[in-house]
Each structure stands twice: as C-alpha cells, then as structure tokens.
C-alpha cells in the first residue's frame, strides 16, 4: 500500500489562474539498472508544479529527490508515465525538441556548480545563451548584467575555479538565468556551501521566485525547505507529504513565459 499523501494546504497558484501547471508528472516512474539490479528511483508519482510556484523537494538521501527534479526538467525520461509541460505531453518529443525545451525554458543549478574550468566566469554564463543562438554581443551584455545582479560582476574575467563556493554558485545561478527561463530547477544548491553563502544563495532564489519564476529546489535541509511555499517530501521514490503554506509569499505574478 502506498502511503496516503496529505492534501496540500492553501490554494495552488495554477488553480487561481486556471492555467495548466508549468510542469506536471502523471503516474511517473523511473527505474534504473544498477549492477544488474533494478532500482525504482521514482514510483508512480503524480505531481503538478503550477506556474509561479516556489517548491522544495525534500527527503533522505536516495529517496529520489534529484531524479524527480531531473524528470521535471526533462533531463531524464520516465520509465513509465508522462511529463507534461504546460499541459502538453512530452513523451513523443524528439531529442532535439527536449534539448530546446531545456535550453530555453529551464534553468538548472547544480550542487557542485558545474562551471567549466577553462572558461572565465563571463564565458560560463554566456555559454547557454550561445547554445540557444543568441548573438555573442547580446549574450555578453546580458551575462554581465546578471553577474552584476548576483554580486560577482567584478569577477567576470576570472576563471570559475578561482572563486569561492558561494561565488561559484551565484555564477551558476546567473548562468541558469541567462536564457530568461520561466522554470528554475536547483539540485541541492546550497549543498556545498557554508551557512552564510547558503543564505545568500537562497535569498537569490527567493528573488527569482518573487519576480514570477517557477522555482523548484531539492534540499535535505528542512530549514531551507521552509523558505519555499510548498514542500514535497519523498521517501523511497514516492511522495509521502505535499504541503503548501498559504502564509508564505507567492510570486507576485507568474511569468507570462511560463504559460506561453
């Protein structure tokens, strides 16, 4: 028997606006083959992330948090079930279409920053824009602006590896924003940071949400999770709790791009 999932408290933004969820999992399972043994990372999960949501996914190590996040961002394909983006199924999408979705609509932030060591900070931020075909000069201007915004503009010409962990993660956030995505997915964004840097990064993510972006992050830190409006708890690949605190700030207005 699957544990009962408590109903989320508070009204979902999607219901308020009657828009399809920014991204939705419908009966999604993901099974890996590990050393010739099947491992169910995610089991029959149905989860809707409305546009403008600020959600945290929590759970113990191995509970399937990261896999769930990857499925939401189409970084991974489900073994069964479907992922819907703005109400549209994605199972039939080609690799190129999925890549285009990832590049234009999603910004990823990784725990270990994943900055390319041989590139400067500015080049790292510019890269996703260039991948999407943005003109280099426009991409550089936008990237520089984002670096100023996250407080590392003065380090633009430095190599990423010469920055502190907190600075690297802020660069990674700038990089996630360079294509102006409606959905930002962060996998343990503070997992490699000290407390002070963690707070700065969470402030930045909260800002992104406040300006209307849909933001989902994975964490095992309950304190950080409480900053989100919604907390989805996973255990053994299943959602065991899904709570939404109405008193927590919601996005002022979901970004138009999220529902386009």
């Amino acid at each position: 028997m699957r544990p009962a999932v408590p109903a989320a408290r508070g009204a979902a933004p999607a219901e308020e606006t009657r828009q399809p969820p920014a991204v939705e999992l419908r009966g999604v399972s993901k099974t890996y083959l590990q050393y010739h043994e099947k491992v169910d990372a995610v089991r029959d999960v149905s989860l809707a992330i409305p546009a403008g949501e600020f959600a945290a996914i929590i759970g113990r190590s191995g509970s399937g948090k990261s896999t769930l996040l990857h499925l939401l961002g189409l970084l991974d394909r489900p073994t069964s079930g479907d992922v819907l983006v703005e109400g549209k199924p994605t199972a039939h999408l080609s690799g190129a279409e999925v890549a285009a979705f990832r590049g234009r609509r999603v910004g990823f932030v990784f725990q270990t920053f994943n900055l390319i060591a041989r590139f400067t900070v500015l080049e790292n931020v510019v890269l996703p824009a260039l991948i999407q075909g943005t003109r280099p000069d426009a991409a550089r201007r936008r990237a520089q602006g984002l670096l100023e915004r996250v407080g590392v503009g003065h380090r633009a010409d430095h190599k990423g590896v010469h920055l502190s962990g907190g600075e690297q993660q802020r660069v990674a956030i700038a990089r996630a924003l360079v294509n102006d995505p409606a959905l930002v997915l962060a996998d343990e964004p503070t997992g490699s940071l000290d407390t002070r840097s963690s707070a700065q990064v969470m402030d930045l993510l909260a800002e992104l949400h406040e300006e209307g972006r849909t933001l989902v992050f994975v964490t095992h830190d309950l304190g950080l999770a409480r900053r989100a409006a919604r907390v989805v708890e996973l255990a053994d690949g299943s959602v065991v709790r899904d709570t939404r605190e109405a008193r927590r700030p919601q996005a002022r207005k979901p970004r138009a791009e999220a529902t386009a």
Partner: peptide, 16 residues
C-alpha cells in the same frame, strides 16, 4: 562527462 551533461542541460543537442 560532467561538462557534457551540463552542456546538455543547457540545451546542447547530441549533434552539437
């Protein structure tokens, strides 16, 4: 490998 994964996360196609 991680860089390849990152590039794909940023929208790079297999062809790229």
């Amino acid at each position: 490998t991680r860089e390849i994964g990152s590039l794909k996360a940023f929208g790079a196609r297999d062809r790229t």
